[in-house]
Design a protein around this nucleic acid. Structure first.
Lengths: 247, 247
DNA sequence: CGACTGACGAGAGCGGTGCTCTCGTTCTGG
DNA sequence: CCAGAACGAGAGCACCGCTCTCGTCAGTCG
């Protein structure tokens, strides 16, 4: 069990040495970054076409003309590669949500825009969406990196709620002083405002999960044979959720 | 490509010959049924402990002291075994929902009871729940058998809605004559009643998917660090959904 | 400048998977 | 009773994730 000198820290933590200044110095390091990106690029393609479950390291290696063992110099395991893709996915979805949000618009319009953007992204990237919001890999414990990225969509929705409160659009809250919602989460759900109490924040979490419930049901086939016009249905129900929020 | 005489129809359609009268005649058939059940029993155990992704036919065979190839006499592929487990899962969840429903109670109480039963079942059978409502296996097309079983929970909720309408508990509907909801699905969502129009039915589908959105988020870890009391949160939000439904 | 050390890619190999094919055996219906 | 179907075992194929070793090359330090 003596630690092999072969295994360098660089494999586990991407950023080292000269790279702290954001400058890639040595040729080796440049090659390493380039190949890492090529691996991710190939893995992204696999994910998009065959899905996470069928994504294989050996296929990525074949794609790049590498020996499969060489990949382990860059990602310690298949799970680590998937984790990276998960983070990228959350980031892409969050970016799509933020791009759709016009902070100068009415809260209700913003809510509609963000929800529509989430659904559009999911329909355009079904396998990536399934990786993010489908069944987690058995025994998969989300590393701390992922939870940060995962919050981005929720934060976008939380901003809308907070801005609505500060604009005086929300109905007055009872000022309930329970604590169903964690302080950390509450901070991301619009921050402090008299019109935002624990009940309102809890309802915000309900609408958040309902949004993904709607998208997941549509994407995973639970609405097959049930809906005639998924588009119209979705926008109508997003409106219902806005009512629940008081937007 | 001449069809091998080895492959009998019995492998694909369980019910044949003397079994149509519900009577198992030959010893061979009795043995076949018994072994099929043993395979399923072992597979259920695997599913519950390691999850669907890690469920392996070879492990089941080892468990039963069989050669792995022998399993293919009973299930043509791993996917077929999983399909069987999916159907059983939907059935078990539906049974739990129905068992929790007291048709003599108030609609809102019934709604709460069914939702609580769904969540309880999911928490007690996380891997089974993930198999039903997590990401579908890539390229997996749900056989017709599964959709029937899958509807059971929805039907239970639909009965509550219909009974509420007939009891005059629901607020009057606008009588909107759109058709977002399929006639077949509408039939299961309480049937025909003046207080049940397309808008109400669509809202029912929203609350249905929201229920599973809540449960999935809790089970798949999206509420970690967000909620202090998942139980209290859930019942409160189920109440909100009941408000949306007008129960 | 040269030597050493660490990073690297290739290849073989291990144990696992789903699935197929063949081959004896055993049961069963005509 | 006997032909044919059903069956279980076993070998084998093509994959998979992952490990280990080995020769090579680059970068650093004396």
């Amino acid at each position: 069990m003596t630690p092999s000198p072969e295994l360098s820290r660089a494999v586990l933590s991407d950023e080292i040495g000269a790279n702290v200044r954001g400058v890639v110095s040595t040729a080796r390091e440049r090659a390493r970054n380039a190949l890492t990106e090529e691996i991710l690029e190939s893995a992204r393609g696999q994910l998009a076409t065959v899905g996470a479950a069928a994504l294989s390291l050996r296929a990525v290696a074949r794609d790049l003309g590498l020996a499969s063992s060489a990949l382990y110099r860059y990602f310690p395991s298949r799970d680590d590669l998937l984790t990276r893709l998960i983070i990228e996915g959350y980031d892409a979805l969050g970016a799509a949500a933020e791009a759709a949000d016009d902070p100068t618009a009415q809260p209700r319009t913003r809510w509609h825009a963000i929800c529509a953007a989430v659904r559009a992204w999911a329909l355009a990237h079904p396998h990536e969406y399934a990786l993010l919001y489908g069944s987690p890999v058995p025994g998969y414990a989300a590393p701390q990196d992922t939870v940060a990225a995962a919050g981005r969509v929720g934060l976008a929705l939380g901003r809308v709620l907070g801005d609505a409160a500060r604009a005086g659009v929300l109905p007055p809250a009872e000022g309930r002083r329970t604590h169903l919602v964690t302080p950390a989460a509450a901070a991301g759900l619009g921050g402090e405002h008299p019109d935002l109490d624990d009940a309102v924040r809890a309802r915000a979490l309900l609408t958040w999960s309902s949004l993904f419930g709607l998208v997941s049901f549509e994407l995973f086939g639970h609405f097959v044979g049930v809906l005639t016009d998924p588009d119209a249905f979705f926008t109508e129900q997003v409106g219902e959720l806005a009512d629940v929020l008081g937007l």
